[in-house]
């Protein structure tokens, strides 16, 4: 069986959940082989990759690779594509992932499909499913030239363990001069709260302009915590400085697809919908019955969020006691 290369997404050496989703998807296409780019891999990371079925872990661990954005990962993948002729290359649909896939596609002369929510083998073709136009249309597509390079959206595929004992294969890559032209000279880490990662969460509770202030987000956070949820925000709320930018949901923020999305004081502009429309169940609290977000609601309350949300939080508290 041909290998399927999976680019590992990690923060500070910890494998992200999206990688376990990609490995799960890769098992349906061939032998999953994880590709780690940059320093910092340890036994725990290799064990996690093995738990989700990686039979090999390629490690390009040179420090230099982490000093430049995007291009190094594309060069590592391009070298491996040349060496192992994989059945497909799966990359997470993050900004870095999409750009890495883009450069790889040009390098190796392959077609590319972005934001797949499912990948499946059909004979020797790989068929990607995409959910486009805000989830209104389901598309099946195939790469028709070269190795299928597919970026896969987070939280779209349920990770399933299937233990394998991965062989570690160290790879050395001679970076091109072009890849070294841009250099990362500093990093500002997003403040990490104790809540689940926005793009990985099963439940997301969001607030918009209707929340009114940074303090107002207290009621949103309290609801989120009662449900073990992540907190999201509309651009109106992040632009106003009420909530940090990294929690923005939408076209230019994060795309989320949780089991449950609760939108509070959000009108439902198309750019916001683009990031949350594929949520399985949507609950809306908004005082304007005409707000377009109600069109998406499975359950909606026309009312003031400052009375509805605290009451909901209290009810949840009672029920879980």
């Amino acid at each position: 069986m041909a290998e399927v290369l999976v680019l590992v997404d990690q923060v500070d050496g910890a494998v992200k959940k999206s990688t376990t989703e990609l490995l799960t998807a890769a098992r349906g296409l061939g032998e999953p082989a994880a590709v780690w780019v940059g320093p910092g891999i340890d036994d725990a990371a290799i064990a996690t990759l093995g738990e989700y079925g990686a039979t090999k872990v390629y490690v390009a661990g040179d420090d230099e690779l982490a000093k430049h954005p995007v291009a190094p990962a594309a060069e590592v993948l391009a070298q491996l594509v040349g060496e192992v002729s994989p059945a497909a290359v799966l990359v997470p649909s993050t900004a870095d992932g999409k750009e890495t896939a883009a450069r790889l596609a040009v390098k190796v002369g392959s077609g590319i499909i972005t934001d797949a929510v499912e990948v499946a083998a059909d004979g020797d073709r790989v068929v990607a499913t995409q959910s486009v136009f805000g989830g209104s249309t389901i598309v099946h597509s195939t790469v028709t030239h070269g190795v299928p390079i597919i970026t896969v959206r987070g939280n779209a595929i349920a990770p399933e363990a299937a233990a394998a004992t991965p062989a570690r294969v160290d790879v050395t890559v001679e970076l091109s001069d072009a890849a070294k032209k841009a250099t990362i000279t500093g990093h500002t880490a997003a403040v990490k709260g104790g809540r689940p990662e926005l793009t990985e969460a099963q439940v997301v509770v969001s607030g918009g302009r209707g929340v009114g202030s940074a303090d107002g987000f207290g009621v949103i956070e309290a609801l989120a915590d009662s449900l073990g949820a992540a907190v999201g925000a509309s651009r109106a709320a992040t632009d106003a400085g009420w909530y940090p930018h990294q929690y923005q949901v939408g076209q230019t923020g994060k795309t989320v697809s949780p089991q449950l999305y609760i939108a509070n004081g959000i009108s439902g502009a198309i750019q916001h919908r683009a990031g949350m429309q594929t949520s399985k169940t949507i609950v809306v609290v908004n005082k304007d019955p005409e707000a377009p977000i109600f069109e998406l609601a499975d359950y909606g309350v026309v009312g003031d969020l400052f009375s509805v949300v605290p009451q909901l939080t209290e009810e949840i508290g009672k029920r879980s006691n």
């Binding site: 109600f294 309350v301 026309v302 003031d304 009375s307 509805v308 909901l312 939080t313 009810e315």
Partner: peptide
């Protein structure tokens, strides 16, 4: 979806 108007019990209804 089901849309209701809050009459003091909106939170309970969502729960």
């Amino acid at each position: 979806g089901t849309i209701v108007t809050d009459e003091g019990d909106g939170g309970t209804k969502v729960a």
